[in-house]
Design a protein around this nucleic acid. Structure first.
Length: 277
DNA sequence: AAACATTCCTGCACGC
DNA sequence: TGCGTGCAGGAATGTT
């Protein structure tokens, strides 16, 4: 489900609704996530207040009192919802409510993940940056470090398709399959082009449109392609504004040519054969 | 019924 | 030989 905009939307919602609350305990019903859930999860978080909610790439970071950070990744199909008893739980199958964090005001954070590709892991604030998950991540797309010159350098000599490079978390953190197609459409570059063949001007356009497209999506609460729902059970509105993703055969919104679907690095990709070179 | 929003691992080719 | 790097492919899994 989630690329950077979905996780950032979630972060903002939780910052308003869950920050300041204290986690009472952790109820674990299913430990088989991407990595087996650590058995000490409950002891690590119980009794700790949620101070702030951060994000790095597609990782949500709940900063708890006492120097503990709860790292959450939603994988392909995960969601973290803040639920209040008696209110509509949303379209989440309770069979996949794998972990629940009751809070001190009677509400609870619920981790639901049908495919179980996600992860939840408590760790110390000091070990966060050096953790295997965050170590080696490239710059955030909104950081000044991610600019035309940086991307130009990163593409030199690379034989992979530019779309695969844009999705490489070591190059830039947070771009996934949906937004990679959208960014390259806006930049006028075909997803299949070898990264090393991208011109300096094209690299500059890709670097410029990356934060633009992602911010637009964040402003719309992310994208619901099939099943994504935000922390309140609401679909993301950016789906209505996708220009190429999942639009194979339909007319390009700029020139009218039929949008084409191709496979790049085992991921479905969409582009306009006329607008994108 | 094929496809899927993510990450991680393996194996191969190649270069130093 | 023995590394490291780049790249392709596959696996994990339930839903639609």
């Amino acid at each position: 489900m989630p690329e950077l905009p979905e996780v950032e939307s979630l972060r903002r919602i939780l910052a308003g609704s869950a920050a300041g609350r204290t986690i009472v305990s952790a109820i674990v019903r299913e430990t088989r996530l991407r990595r087996p859930l650590r058995h000490d999860l409950a002891e690590a978080v119980a009794g700790r207040a949620i101070l702030e909610i951060g994000r790095r790439a597609k990782y949500l970071l709940l900063e708890l009192r006492g120097g503990v950070v709860l790292m959450v990744h939603l994988g392909m199909s995960g969601s973290l919802t803040h639920r209040r008893d008696g209110c509509d739980p949303g379209p989440f199958d309770p069979r996949h409510d794998h972990v629940e964090f009751p809070l001190d005001d009677g509400t609870r954070l619920v981790y639901n993940d049908p495919r179980r590709f996600g992860m939840i892991k408590p760790l110390g604030r000091a070990e966060l940056a050096g953790s295997p998950e965050l170590r080696g991540l490239g710059p955030e797309p909104f950081a000044s470090e991610f600019n035309a010159e940086y991307l130009w350098r990163a593409t030199r000599g690379r034989l992979v398709a530019v779309k695969a490079l844009l999705m490489d978390q070591r190059i830039v953190a947070g771009v996934g399959n949906i937004y990679a197609s959208e960014i390259l459409f806006r930049a006028g570059v075909r997803p299949t082009r070898r990264a090393g063949r991208v011109t300096r001007a094209e690299a500059a356009r890709i670097a410029a449109f990356t934060p633009i497209v992602l911010s637009e999506a964040i402003g719309d609460g992310g994208t619901t392609f099939r099943s994504y729902r935000d922390s309140r059970g609401q679909p993301g509105r950016f789906a209505e504004r996708l220009q190429v993703y999942d639009r194979a055969g339909r007319p390009c919104l700029v020139c009218g040519a039929a949008i084409r679907a191709v496979t790049v690095g085992q991921r479905s990709s969409f582009h306009c054969p006329r607008c994108q070179k």
